[in-house]
Design a protein around this nucleic acid. Sequence first.
DNA 1: AATTTTCAAGACTGACGAGTCTAGTATATA
DNA 2: TATATACTAGACTCGTCAGTCTTGAAAATT
Lengths: 211, 211
Amino acid sequence: MAQAAEKVRTPGRPKSVRKRREILRAAVELFTEKGYEGTSVDDIAQAAGVSKQTVYSHFGNKETLFALAVETKCKQSGIDPDLIDTQAPPETMLLELGRRFVGLLTSPEAVRVHCVCTTSAETYPELGRLFFEHGPLQTVEVVAGYLADQHRRKKLYVPEPGHAAWQFLCMLKGEAQMRAQFNLRRQSQEDLDAYIKSCVAMFLRAYAPRT
Amino acid sequence: MAQAAEKVRTPGRPKSVRKRREILRAAVELFTEKGYEGTSVDDIAQAAGVSKQTVYSHFGNKETLFALAVETKCKQSGIDPDLIDTQAPPETMLLELGRRFVGLLTSPEAVRVHCVCTTSAETYPELGRLFFEHGPLQTVEVVAGYLADQHRRKKLYVPEPGHAAWQFLCMLKGEAQMRAQFNLRRQSQEDLDAYIKSCVAMFLRAYAPRT
DNA sequence: AATTTTCAAGACTGACGAGTCTAGTATATA
DNA sequence: TATATACTAGACTCGTCAGTCTTGAAAATT
């Protein structure tokens, strides 16, 4: 395992890493756009500017390519941990987090990926785990960490930061995520922001520091 | 339109309503089980004990049948409004509602229907609306009504019952719904119940009556 | 009884898509 | 240079599936 990165010299022309990257890029784009059934290997080959045979030579079959594409995609999502500012007042921080999270949740891309993953999780349980651990779980852990910190600083009273993080994030989903998932007319920006503020306020009431 | 229910006599053998019902029943079962792409018209015909031609004669094409099947299914979901007891203490009532709601959310069937509907909503926006209005929206309205009532009785302080209902229900989704959707190992019953109780408690702290 | 329509069984068409194969060309190593 | 492999282009196999068509029987109306 120590030489994992070492290239074993084999005779003949080596496989082009550039082509491999191109295929994966096209696969990510098409699969997250159209889903597994809605995307043919020919489509991917064409989008990657490569022959179908090359796709098979690099990835073996459609399923393998799909799993890799989903994994790749999931690693690009989630809330940026650097966003956290432990000094800011919780109200400000939670409002900021809330707005970002809702923005992420309702983006057409996130909706599509979520949808593709739930559908595929039925047949490939591995994919469900992949998405869950690289996506939502990361975000929950970032928020839970923040809440635990505020608890220690006595800015909030959150004895169970894990529960509280799930509560906060799930609460935010609200009507907005449903409307996005079911392809319905979005709420107005004012309605959406009013809801987010209401969530932050109620969360702060429930987890106010004990006097 | 006044004679909508009146049967217009036509010569020849009338279409069998029993067969129509059988086809729709089989369609609901298969579509919610395997999704749109995963179910062929031949499968439905066979499951209904009917010839393919009969399916087409009753419903015209696959899409129409699918839309009808989803509509039928959605009308069978949601929280029973008769469950509401305005006299019981809010803590008891919310805990009961919470447990039922989580049970509903994580049932394999609900997960499948939700998944099929989000996937299909991309191509048939009507279906998204159907599911949303017959499913989640009903439940939110029942809970919002209950909270408004408790507000009037001064058992809780909930000036915006709509927001509060979304918050309460979405909060409950938590990790449990994700695990169900992504086909992961379920939480233990104790963990699940601890989370639900934590949600009810935090909701009551946030919306406690003002003294 | 004559007529009209439903229904079953199954053949059929046309499209699509996963995966294989071939023949020829390009690019690497020894 | 000889050899091994990557790659292209496109033909090809094989299976699936939506929707149509045919034939003959069953069940309703007049």
